[in-house]
Simulated scan of single mutants.
Amino acid sequence: MAKFLILYRSPRTAREQMANTDSAAAAAGMDAWNAWGERAAAALVDMGSPVQSVAGPGGGDPIGGFSIMQGGSLGEVQGLLEGHPHTESGGTIEVLEFLAMPGVQSTEG
């Protein structure tokens, strides 16, 4: 199985989004994320967390969070990301595949 790092990008940082969202909207957003998590559960290695971008190269929206997923192919994972609540709210998703490091033995079973 291939493993993928899912990066959630948005024009506003995660901290700004959380600070400027009322409690009803925040609860509805978490309900949508939890529903997606249930749908993608078999592929989720780590649901992830919001993150605060503190520094980095210019260009592109800041990374506001991440998840780690696994699947038989990139297409399989991309299919599970269709209709994701992050993109439904105007954000973008970047998918990066983990590569094996030559000469490093895997600790996964």
Rank of each mutant, 00 (worst) to 15 (best):
A35V: 06
L96E: 06
A42W: 08
E97P: 07
G103Q: 02
A43I: 00
A19V: 01
S67L: 02
I68H: 05
M69V: 11
M101A: 15
S106V: 01
E76N: 11
D31I: 09
H84A: 03
A55K: 11
T21W: 03
L81M: 08
L99H: 01
P57H: 10
V104Y: 10
A100T: 05
P85S: 06
P62V: 03
E94V: 06
I68A: 02
P62M: 04
N34A: 11
V104T: 13
L74G: 00
G59N: 10
V51D: 04
F98P: 08
Q52V: 13
E94Y: 04
E38C: 00
M101K: 15
A42E: 14
V54T: 15
P85M: 07
D61I: 05
G29L: 05
D61A: 13
H86I: 00
A28E: 14
W36H: 01
Q52R: 15
T21S: 13
D22K: 07
G60P: 10
E88V: 08
G83S: 00
G103C: 04
G65A: 02
V51C: 05
A25D: 06
A26C: 02
S67M: 05
Q78N: 12
Q70E: 14
S89K: 11
L80Y: 13
A35I: 06
M30N: 11
I68R: 00
P50T: 13
T21N: 08
G65H: 00
